[in-house]
Design a protein around this nucleic acid. Structure first.
Length: 684
DNA sequence: CTTCTAGCG
């Protein structure tokens, strides 16, 4: 077990936008275990499964414009194909798009190692937001959003011979936007090549999407599919005979059963959320203690893994268990794609996943628990077969498995599209309703997005981006509502305060929640010191200012139950936003404690999220008449309910809860967003 | 009287 060698990131990846995910972990395409470490780089490259297909791939790329490449993770496609193309003397750059920053950076490092001794410098580079190296490398690894930005200044991607969209099966919002745009560009630039790399079997649909002449047999196909075998070992699949009443208990039982059977290898459990993970870890730890006492059975170490777990704790899952112990990792979906945990031989799969789903009637995102798709089930199972042949225990019946959808619905069909639509518009697509989406979203979702963009004055009545505001908002890496607030802050003379508030909204809460009785009360008392009746956002402003006045001291954070790391990150984000805002000529000034100007400025962008106190005692949105409640975390929860509020987000659990509230005056809505709120709305 | 799957710009 000791020959696992995680590759750590170079220190250049210190962008604090990423702090909470930074670790970490290695992306699934990275090579964690390299049994050929002592061999020369060239020998290693030739050992990759993809090497046998080298000439065939190059041939297909000569003949076809689009290559849909199906290959399991670890076959080497994302590191090797760009090198093959350079070796075959394709003249311009090869761009590789990754869904995650860590992946882009670690792939670039890997390929730089491989090519370093052979080719001159400047061969390989990467670009992720706020961090780039090598201006125009021959092979460029980047995040998907970066290529979109490049398209804004270079719509035909004239610097590139080929673009590779990696991990396309994940179907992020950006993957889909990129694929739609690439289809257009390919028609205009016949010499450009596209490689769509996917781990699953939706290849046929992708090929059809990119095939220019699918029905006319006189013209030849422009897209082709090819499969590359991975270095995956076989995985035995087990189903439960009868549906289990509780998959948490079932997963605990299954872990213990595997452990008693004394088959070697670590165990990975897939559950849906943080709370489930922690409960299961507690249950397993109780058993682990019993096991230690009995001294007979094999001992286990139990580790949680989920996105908001502190950095330090996330890293623990990459270490192998001490001698005489078996590692049991209880994880959310993070372990399905984002993170590869070494040593796993057994996978336990609950069969469910939490997905964000946009509800067009309430205009809110909900987090819903749904059965996974077949490709997701396969992906989870595959986590067991990376070391040697493995086993997956599915906590659902074979009938249930047969009924699963083939693929998880792409984000495009289940997201709030405001930002995506703005991006597509900024890339020169006039009629968004006719845009060729790989999976068209519901028309209503598109219309809602257009409505909001129009109300924000980011597009005009013709649907054209406005100048300069629409273009500026498109360039800003924020929710358009927040960008609008920022760009309005100059006219209200409160950009200093607004910068702080928006930066605070970019991190998870900076209030830490102690778990033991006494501290819970103490934390609540300390929080009161910052609270104001104007709401949460002004409260955040007080917290931040207090932190700055304390010279960013850790003692201040400790005393007030605040997250030092979180606030440091806010400082960094704020610094970046301020720099960007200055570039757009917005004056940076303070309104010195006039919260009215700040709150008016917030209304200028957040007006679609307004709610009033209905005589029934709960709040209702003005658009849509949806019933909402104040979230118990809000400072407004414990004081008499104000008549009018605006909110930043809604979470859907037992009810629809508004979070991050600000108290407003109803007159401001008419004054600042008259086009959105006609007077009649108020008198119904 | 309670949340926060994952991730990007």
């Amino acid at each position: 077990m000791s020959d696992f060698k995680p590759r750590f990131l170079k220190p250049s990846d210190t962008s604090s936008f990423l702090d909470k995910n930074e670790p970490q972990s290695l992306e699934s395409t990275d090579f964690i275990y390299n049994k050929h470490l002592s061999q020369s780089i060239q020998t290693q490259r030739q050992r990759l499964p993809i090497f046998n297909n080298r000439n065939h791939i190059l041939y297909l790329l000569e003949k076809f414009q689009t290559l849909v490449l199906v290959g399991e993770t670890g076959c080497g496609k994302s590191t090797q194909i760009p090198q093959y193309m350079i070796e075959a003397e394709w003249p311009l750059s090869i761009g590789v798009c990754e869904p995650r920053r860590v992946a882009a950076i670690s792939l670039a490092n890997r390929v730089a190692d491989e090519t370093g001794s052979l080719v001159q410098q400047e061969t390989v580079g990467y670009a992720v937001m706020f961090d780039a190296c090598n201006n125009k490398p021959k092979i460029k690894y980047m995040t998907e959003g970066i290529l979109l930005r490049e398209m804004m200044s270079d719509p035909l991607l004239k610097d590139y011979s080929a673009i590779m969209i990696d991990e396309a099966h994940e179907r992020t919002l950006y993957t889909d936007i990129l694929m739609g745009l690439m289809k257009k560009i390919l028609k205009r630039r016949k010499e450009l090549r596209l490689i769509v790399a996917s781990a699953t079997l939706d290849a046929k649909a992708l090929q059809e999407f990119f095939n220019n002449n699918p029905t006319d047999d006189k013209k030849k196909d422009t897209a082709v599919i090819m499969s590359v075998e991975g270095r995956q070992f076989p995985v035995d699949v087990f189903y439960v005979a009868e549906p289990v009443p509780c998959y948490l208990q079932a997963s605990v039982d299954t872990v213990l059963k595997i452990n008693e059977s004394k088959q070697p290898g670590d165990i990975l459990v897939f559950l849906t959320g943080q709370e489930e993970v922690e409960r299961t870890v507690r249950l397993l730890n109780e058993h682990a203690n019993l096991i230690e006492e009995s001294r007979k059975k094999e001992k286990i170490v139990v580790l949680p893994m989920y996105g908001s777990l502190p950095h330090h704790d996330q890293l623990k899952v990459f270490r192998s268990a001490p001698d005489g112990y078996r590692k049991v990792v209880v994880a959310t979906n993070i372990a399905e794609t984002s993170v590869t945990i070494p040593g796993i031989v057994h996978v336990i799969d609950c069969g469910f996943v939490k997905l964000k789903w946009y509800n067009n009637e309430t205009h809110t995102d909900s987090l819903v628990t749904l059965p996974i798709s077949k490709s997701s089930a396969d992906q989870r199972a595959g986590r067991a077969g990376r070391l040697r042949s493995g086993k997956v225990y599915r906590l659902y019946t074979e009938e249930f498995a047969a009924k699963l959808a083939d693929n998880t619905p792409p984000e495009m069909v289940r997201s709030n599209l405001t930002y995506a639509v703005l991006q597509i518009k900024a890339l020169g697509i006039a009629n968004i309703l006719k845009f060729d989406f790989p999976s068209p979203p519901p028309i209503q979702n598109l219309k809602s997005a257009l409505e909001i963009l129009y109300a924000l004055d980011a597009i005009d009545i013709e649907g054209e981006l406005t100048r300069p505001l629409g273009f500026n908002i498109a360039e800003f890496a924020l929710d358009p509502l927040y960008s609008k607030v920022l760009f309005s802050s100059g006219e209200f003379g409160c950009s200093e305060e607004i910068l702080t508030i928006i930066a605070m909204l970019q991190v998870e809460t900076v209030f830490t929640k102690p778990s033991t009785g006494n501290s819970i009360i103490k934390a609540r008392i300390q929080k009161r010191l910052f609270e104001v009746e104007e709401g949460d956002l002004i409260t955040y402003l007080n917290v931040f200012n207090g932190f700055i006045q304390s010279d960013m001291s850790q003692g201040f954070c400790h005393k007030n139950f605040l997250s030092y790391k979180g606030l440091k990150r806010v400082v960094e984000i704020r610094r970046r936003l301020e720099k960007m805002l200055r570039n757009y000529g917005v004056p940076i000034e303070s309104c010195i404690r006039s919260t009215e100007m700040i709150r008016k400025c917030l209304v200028k962008g957040l007006f679609p999220n307004a709610a009033y106190l209905h005589h029934s005692g709960s709040y209702k949105t003005i658009r849509g008449d949806i019933e909402l409640s104040v979230h118990p975390d809000s400072v407004l929860y414990t004081i008499p309910q104000p008549q009018w509020v605006i909110f930043c987000q809604v979470v859907h659990t037992t009810k629809l809860f508004m979070r991050d509230l600000t108290v407003i005056d109803s007159d401001w809505l008419l004054e600042l967003a008259p086009h959105f709120y006609f007077k009649t709305t108020f008198h119904e």
